Structures are given as structure tokens and as C-alpha cells.
Computed example of a mutant assay.
Amino acid sequence: MIIESRFNGPPGSGNGGWSAGIFAANHGADGPVEVTLRRPPPLDTPLTVVDGDVLDPDGRLVAQVRPAGDPPPAVPPVDPATAAVVSAAYPGLRDHPFPGCYVCGPERTDGLRIFPGRLPDGRTAAPFRAPDPVVPATVWAALDCPGGWAVLAPGRPYVLGRIAAVVDGLPAPGDDCVVTGAAVEVVGRRAVVDTSLYGPTGALLGRARATWVAVSPQPASRP
């Protein structure tokens, strides 16, 4: 099991949602799964899952995979036109802590390019065109950053700490989908957020609840 370098989030680290989706798939649990990241997932490094613990070649704990209990609630859907309008005002286009992120980084022409904008009620929404190929980790990745952008603010970056997700279905390559996100609770440095992915017919394809942790700002990595 390897997180390839192109699936990065912060520089030198795997994107949290993609990494969690890979870890969950390799664990093979039935039903909702919760993944807790214990340190940044290393890139291009062989990893193993032992009794739900994801370990690096030196035996260090990278993540833990556990049953999640009840499925996360769904964030209400948004029509594609509204999602496109708010996405045009995506704050990450002007100020992004990790502009090379595979999911939401504006510098990644080869990424998912999910750019969540803020709705008047505080939720986020973004259009999402499914890539080719699509795997369950693609849905986990799409369910990652849109929730974070419900709490991210200039000078206040967050990173994913824990995510519990359910994949109800996979979009077909090229499908035009919509992702929605919402903040549930913010206490100190920790924020709980929900996200949902809807397919082109409006069907719910995935939902997640995640805990994000605020970190110190750092200079953005530019090519």
C-alpha cells in the first residue's frame, strides 16, 4: 500500500481524504469506517495495515482504522448552478495554505480541482467532475477539503485529523457532481465538519464527518 506523491495534501504529506480512503479499502471493514491520522501520511512509502493500525516500514504508527458506528448525516444538496456561482468566489484562489493540494489546490491542473465557496447559510458547495479512473478513495478525497473550507480562514489553516465516511456509490468518469460541506462545531483548535457528495442525478454518493485541527501558518510552497 503506497500513497503516490501526486496524491499529496500539505507538502510532503498525503492528502488526508485520499490517504484515509486507501487505508479504509485495505482494512476491508464492512459499513462506516473511521480513520484517525496519527501523523502526516508519508508519500511513496510502503505501508501496511495490521489489526487496523497503518504502519510505516519502521513500524511507526501512521493511522488507525476502526468501525465508525452510525453513518454520518448528509449535508443538504445544492443545485449545480448555485455550486458553480459560489465556487467562483473560492477563497483558496487568493489565499491557500497548501496550494498544491491534490483535491483543492489551485496550482494542481492534474488534481480534482474542487473549489468550495461559501453559501449565505455558512455551508460550502463546489462542482466536481469525476476523474478517470474513479475508485472509492476518490470519493473519500472529494469528501475531505470541502468540509475543511467551512472553517478555514486567512491565517488560520487546518489539517485533517480524523474522518468517518460512507461511500454509497461511485460516480462514473466525467460525471458532473456537487460536494457540500458544513461546520458542526468549533472548539479551540478543533473543528467538526460534515460533507456530502451528490451525483449528476442528485443521488447521494458519499458522506463524511471529520475532525480538523488548526495548525500554525507556514509559507505556501510554490514551484
Results as ranks from 00 to 15, higher is better:
residue 7 F to S: 08
residue 7 F to H: 15
residue 11 P to Q: 10
residue 14 G to V: 03
residue 20 A to R: 02
residue 21 G to A: 12
residue 22 I to Y: 04
residue 22 I to H: 09
residue 24 A to N: 03
residue 27 H to N: 06
residue 31 G to V: 03
residue 32 P to K: 10
residue 37 L to N: 02
residue 38 R to K: 15
residue 42 P to A: 05
residue 42 P to W: 04
residue 43 L to D: 10
residue 44 D to Q: 03
residue 44 D to F: 01
residue 52 G to N: 08
residue 54 V to P: 02
residue 57 P to F: 01
residue 57 P to Y: 06
residue 57 P to L: 02
residue 58 D to F: 00
residue 58 D to L: 05
residue 60 R to C: 00
residue 60 R to A: 14
residue 60 R to S: 10
residue 61 L to H: 13
residue 63 A to T: 03
residue 65 V to Q: 03
residue 72 P to I: 02
residue 73 P to G: 01
residue 73 P to C: 00
residue 73 P to T: 05
residue 74 A to C: 10
residue 74 A to E: 14
residue 74 A to N: 03
residue 75 V to H: 01
residue 79 D to K: 02
residue 86 V to M: 05
residue 88 A to K: 10
residue 91 P to A: 04
residue 92 G to N: 10
residue 92 G to W: 11
residue 93 L to H: 14
residue 95 D to S: 15
residue 97 P to Q: 12
residue 97 P to I: 11
residue 99 P to G: 07
residue 100 G to R: 13
residue 103 V to S: 13
residue 108 R to L: 11
residue 108 R to T: 05
residue 109 T to P: 01
residue 110 D to N: 12
residue 114 I to G: 14
residue 117 G to A: 09
residue 118 R to V: 13
residue 118 R to E: 12
residue 119 L to T: 00
residue 123 R to L: 04
residue 123 R to V: 04
residue 124 T to M: 01
residue 130 A to F: 09
residue 132 D to W: 04
residue 135 V to I: 15
residue 136 P to E: 05
residue 136 P to C: 06
residue 137 A to E: 13
residue 137 A to L: 06
residue 138 T to N: 10
residue 138 T to D: 08
residue 139 V to K: 07
residue 142 A to K: 07
residue 142 A to D: 08
residue 144 D to R: 07
residue 151 V to G: 13
residue 152 L to D: 13
residue 157 P to Q: 15
residue 157 P to W: 12
residue 158 Y to N: 14
residue 160 L to D: 10
residue 160 L to Q: 09
residue 163 I to R: 06
residue 163 I to E: 09
residue 167 V to W: 09
residue 170 L to H: 08
residue 175 D to R: 01
residue 176 D to P: 00
residue 179 V to N: 11
residue 180 T to C: 13
residue 182 A to T: 08
residue 184 V to H: 08
residue 191 A to T: 07
residue 192 V to H: 06
residue 192 V to R: 15
residue 198 Y to E: 11
residue 199 G to N: 06
residue 202 G to D: 08
residue 202 G to L: 10
residue 202 G to T: 09
residue 203 A to N: 11
residue 204 L to Y: 09
residue 205 L to I: 11
residue 206 G to E: 10
residue 206 G to D: 11
residue 208 A to T: 00
residue 210 A to R: 04
residue 214 A to M: 14
residue 216 S to C: 00
residue 216 S to G: 12
residue 219 P to M: 01
residue 220 A to H: 09
residue 220 A to I: 08
residue 221 S to G: 05
residue 223 P to H: 09
residue 223 P to V: 05
